[in-house]
Nucleic acid binder design. Structure first.
Lengths: 350, 350
DNA sequence: CTGAAAGCGCTAACAG
DNA sequence: CTGTTAGCGCTTTCAG
């Protein structure tokens, strides 16, 4: 491990001059050619700064903590950590992922761990979009929220969230563009999911915009976002619809969509010929194990976490900057579960 | 942030005494009651050691690096990092995950990053079980292999791998125990997968043990582990089997199994009534989106990575210990895709 | 049994 | 323009 000391000796100069040159604080302090020569030999000798020394001196670790709940089978975890990793590396930081169990004091403990490592900032991620209280972090440690917002009206902390409304609007618009007019929505009846209201709002907005405000949208909420609840809800919706069944369904989640597909098949409907469906989440493998391959709205965890890290770095480097609410769009992933609507007259002929 | 200095002042003693007491190096150096009192007040004042200072002094960071390829949708990534995280935390270390792209110099770069952070050890993980060369890491930095083995006969480095043979043996034995006798195996025809041979070996061994060496096992290899290749291979197998079709199939992977299921259904077979299948991997969501819920062998990434970290910590703390090859068992996950075999006479009656 | 002092690699006043 | 110096928090001889 070559130190500044080594390169100073090698050049017959002092450590502080080397330090100045290496930190590009040499404007009018070290003459240009010398500075250049220092940097060159540093490179040559394979100098890498000792981060412990730096940290000790500057109270800066060039490390960022990602604190999040980790259930062993969270489908979004890899995308989240991956995006955060990449962004951190890009910015010259390292990412430390600190898992937090669901035990009571776990979050405080995680924060403690992070602080002890002297991280320069913390990203708090939720396991799904939710409202949460501001964590007990000293004012001196910048932090941002990922996939969650603080209780209280105005963002007092930078928050990175998905644009659920836009995503569901787009999905519904896609169905409308395919000629469907009788479109239902299978939501979820659990207020812990903030997304619940946002996705319904996007759905309604698209319908209103394309069909006018006259149409009463067909909406049934499943008990939870599971496959079986989705299945049940779909049956309910078809029964409620009676003789005018929907030709397309927008679903709260991919799992909901899967349940819906099972219900539809049980009723003798072919997918996507008789019923088009769009899911939400773009859970990995969903597209592979689902047939027809599911058209769905992606929850862009990778982009979100990358953005969260970028925002955090910004706040680390500009401590006085204002908190922001960043909304990242949810792209619609076109696959095979949506078909153009067939006018009902033609359908009867077959 | 309270320092040793603070607690020394508070007690009117010197820093070195505190250090001695805190590090339990006080045997016959500090009198017992004082040492105890020091530890008590440290606790009270909320002392936490400054890791930068420690690292600087001792060249130890209490950090471990996990270096691995990360494709954004590796289904095993969360389990792997999760297990490693937990084990590292348990051992008082922190885990730094360093992603490595598939670009040429990427691995060297990742190692560089790790070394610069002064990690105490490195876990190298492969994206699937494979043989690989020893990475260019200084002798002073302990490392272990996860899900890979070194080229060369004897392990020169500690390796943690899954017991693929045992897993497939158990799966096949389960099928046999359910009364099946005509059992086929859909493998994969790609030698990059070391698992390929091991799984086939387990399959053959179970058959031999239960059925004797007379039976020629029905084996078809798919071109790759994808769904479509599995589907094709299954058709091929059924054609080859002719009038004596298998009543159960063991599959190289869950995706293979999914393809197999599609092929079977296309041939009018009901699952699991007419055909039992067992997969391999226990990929998340596979059980949910697969119907019937897939009985499969789990690739225990969480346990493996935890074990790798434990081994690494052991090597960090006992540098002269011998390299080991650790094999962790693959449990069979019982779900709904296996049914007891029905004697062929009864089958015809229905 | 306890304390003083040096030093890990680096930065930042401050002198020169 | 360059060098000297002190000090970040801790461990570890070495004296006392």
């Amino acid at each position: 491990m070559v130190r500044m000391r080594d390169i100073a000796d090698h050049l017959g100069i002092s450590v502080s001059t080397v330090s100045l040159a290496m930190n590009r604080k040499d404007q009018g302090r070290v003459n240009a050619p010398l500075a250049e020569r220092i940097r060159a030999t540093a490179q040559e000798m394979g100098y890498t700064p000792n981060l412990h020394a730096l940290g000790l001196k500057l109270n800066k670790s060039h490390a960022i903590a990602l604190i999040c709940r980790t259930s062993p089978d969270d489908p979004f975890l890899s995308a989240m950590t991956g995006g955060a990793q990449a962004a951190a590396t890009d910015a010259g930081y390292i990412l430390i992922t600190i898992p937090v169990s669901s035990a009571p004091g776990a979050e405080a403990e995680a924060i403690e761990t992070a602080l002890q490592r002297d991280v320069d900032g913390i990203v708090f991620a939720a396991d799904f979009y939710r409202r949460r209280s501001i964590p007990g972090v000293p004012d001196s440690t910048p932090f941002v929220f990922l996939d969650c917002v603080s209780t209280g009206a105005n963002p007092v902390v930078t928050e990175v969230i998905a644009d659920e409304v836009q995503g569901s609007f787009e999905a519904t618009a896609h169905l409308l563009a395919a000629g469907h007019t009788r479109i239902g929505y299978i939501g979820v009846d659990d207020d812990r999911y903030l997304a619940r209201h946002l996705r319904e709002r996007g759905f309604r907005a698209a319908l209103r915009e394309h069909l006018g405000s006259g149409a009463a949208p067909l909406i049934v909420n499943a008990a939870d976002p599971s496959i079986s609840a989705g299945e049940q809800a779909a049956h309910q919706l078809f029964e409620r619809a009676g003789s005018e069944p929907p030709t397309a369904l927008f679903c709260f989640s991919d799992r909901t969509a899967f349940g819906v597909a099972q219900a539809a098949r049980a009723r003798g409907l072919r997918l996507p010929e008789d019923l088009s469906i769009v899911g939400f989440d773009n859970v990995e493998y969903t597209s592979e194990f689902f047939s027809p391959r599911l058209t769905t709205v992606e929850l862009p965890h990778q982009r979100m976490s990358a953005e969260a890290v970028r925002q955090l770095v910004h706040r680390i480097e500009h401590p006085r900057s204002d908190p922001l609410r960043i909304t990242v769009p949810c792209p619609l992933i076109h696959r095979d579960s949506v078909r153009p609507a067939v006018p009902s007259s033609e359908r009867l002929e077959r």
